[in-house]
């Protein structure tokens, strides 16, 4: 089959992006990707991971998403695909889901990026807010960021770069990272998908494009697909 390695497209000219559609605001991410010319798919079944170059885990309820990921057999497969070089982006609940560990005991995150995260850092829903954020390496005006019962990054491993922070406040709240990147894995506390600003989605598409054209990933994916027993 020309242009296909076990379902992984490589000649379409653009990366294939999936949005995890178990729960949350996946439709908003798909809409944002559509705005920049990417036709993304809803991912509800683990087999679909073999067909995409990048996965977005959207905002939602992190306890619910973690439970559904476990229930439907995603966890090991997500590790294998991310290890092999698939791009990954978690927004808000998605950031909690992919963290190394959390300040609270529940839920158990997937450890797909080397960050510690505190949930509901700013308080309850009545404390949710919007603010302007400067993102490192991003041209133009600051980004309007929507924080809804938002988490923050408490600590980062050596390979993690911080892209945006909320500065310390006079009343003693320390500076907090709210956007981080490690290799092809991106995590943000806030919800670019609730705005009209597509710049972070464009960045993620670039990461997925790297994944698509990564020869070593394609080789390991081939191997991985061979090994994966069919669940159909």
């Amino acid at each position: 089959m020309v242009g296909q390695v076990n379902g992984v497209a490589d000649t379409s000219g653009q990366p294939k992006i999936g949005v995890l559609a178990l729960q949350g605001d996946f439709a908003e991410h798909i809409h944002m990707l559509g705005e920049i010319g990417i036709c993304a798919v809803e991912v509800r079944k683990v087999e679909q991971l073999s067909e995409i170059d990048g996965l977005i885990i959207p905002g939602g309820e992190s306890t619910t998403i973690v439970k559904l990921l476990g229930m439907f057999g995603f966890i090991d497969e997500l590790h294998r695909h991310v290890d092999s070089g698939m791009a990954l982006w978690g927004t808000c609940a998605g950031m909690i889901v992919i963290a190394r560990d959390l300040a609270d005991p529940y839920p158990t995150p997937l450890n797909l990026i080397d960050i510690g995260v505190a949930r509901n850092y700013f308080g309850r829903q009545v404390d949710s807010f919007e603010a302007e954020l400067e993102i490192d390496g991003m041209d133009g005006a600051p980004m309007r960021a929507v924080f809804i019962r938002a988490p923050i990054v408490q600590d980062t491993g050596d390979d993690v770069e911080t892209l945006a922070v909320i500065p310390a406040t006079d009343d003693g709240r320390p500076e907090q990272a709210v956007a981080v990147k490690s290799g092809r894995v991106l995590a943000t506390s806030f919800h670019p998908e609730l705005t009209e600003d597509t710049r972070l989605h464009t960045l993620f598409v670039q990461l997925a494009e790297e994944a698509r054209t990564d020869a070593s990933r394609r080789a390991s994916l081939h191997h991985l697909t061979e090994e994966t027993p069919s669940t159909v």
Binding site: A21, L22, Q23, G24, D25, F26, A27, E28, G59, G60, E61, C92, A93, Q125, S128, V146, I148, R149, H191, L194
Partner: peptide
């Protein structure tokens, strides 16, 4: 936005 997060 919170309601958006509850979807599904």
């Amino acid at each position: 936005g919170l309601a958006q997060m509850l979807k599904g």
